[in-house]
Design a protein around this nucleic acid. Structure first.
Lengths: 162, 162
DNA sequence: CCCTATTTGATATGGTGGATAACAATTATC
DNA sequence: GATAATTGTTATCCACCATATCAAATAGGG
């Protein structure tokens, strides 16, 4: 067994066996970076707002309820791109934590008007502070305010006009 | 019933009942626009590459296999952020369509070396053309080459350094 | 050389989001 | 007043993600 050259760990070949794979055209694919960045941002959001146990989706619901009082489930869900059936369980979660409430409408007894509770408003206020001071602040630090604004503008443009 | 003011459709109140909800701080939340933009981009990718029946994830696997021959499942999956257990079914799909093949390694009989088949290379080539000519071209049209490059750069930065 | 630890692909399983069909209650429409 | 449409809800399915576990194979230490 002394003819050596195949037993160990193949140092004979080219030699990029270590780890670093070549991403190739993948690094030019916008969708790929977009997805990766989105996962990172959501991960950081969850971390920053962990004390309040709010997901990005839940936070967006609370924000929307605060800015749009008197709306029903369908209106809120549609605005956020959530399908009505899937919005039910989400509201159940928020309502069971006393962050919002379903109130039967007097005009149309089919619909539930959604309201923030006092606790919901308090949690939202704290969440806003955490997001601004930890999450978005970190982004500003990484990109700078001007770049951050440009990035937001382009993403909004894609979301709306693409 | 002629005392009017409550029967019809409540034109008495403020009056923004039509539809347009106020997004409020949501439009300043980068994560929100990021997610929305990502969904749009993936939707368009699927549409553009529909004739080949490839998802973004599948396309990224084919790209990676092409640029990194001789790698095993773990290496490819790790690079793409896919967990090994979830990569199995994905490979089953690609292999059953004869786009790639698992080949037992001679050095290490535990691992499967992943190879693109001829058909896989052909499909990848066609997919690249569709993505470039339809998908990415449309993005360039919307943002312009310079903005598109800046966007990609910032997203990559977030994905890597955030 | 043997025994143990590690690695690789695979399976099973659970959780979460997203999508559609269907339903009862209510309202709109003709 | 009969029929259609809307609202919230349930049930169900599918894609994706995550963890524990396993058998086969390899690596490492005595």
């Amino acid at each position: 067994m002394a003819e050596g050259g195949k037993a160990r760990k193949e140092p004979a070949d080219a030699g990029i066996e270590g780890s670093a794979l070549q991403l190739g055209e993948l690094s030019e694919l916008l969708g790929y970076s977009l997805k990766r960045a989105q996962l990172r941002i959501f991960e950081d959001f969850l971390r920053c707002v962990a004390p309040l146990q709010l997901t990005p989706a839940q936070f967006s619901v609370l924000l929307l309820l605060d800015k749009n009082p008197g709306r029903n489930q369908t209106e809120i869900a549609n605005t956020l791109g959530i399908l009505r059936p899937n919005f039910v369980a989400m509201l159940d979660g928020l309502e069971s934590r006393d962050l919002c409430a379903r109130v039967r409408s007097a005009n149309d007894r089919r619909s539930h008007i959604l309201e923030l509770t006092d606790k919901g408003r308090a949690v939202l206020a704290r969440a806003k502070k955490l997001v601004a001071s930890k999450h978005e602040a970190r982004l500003n630090e990484l990109l700078g305010p001007a770049n951050r604004a440009a990035l937001l503008s382009m993403l909004t443009r894609i979301a709306q006009e693409f």
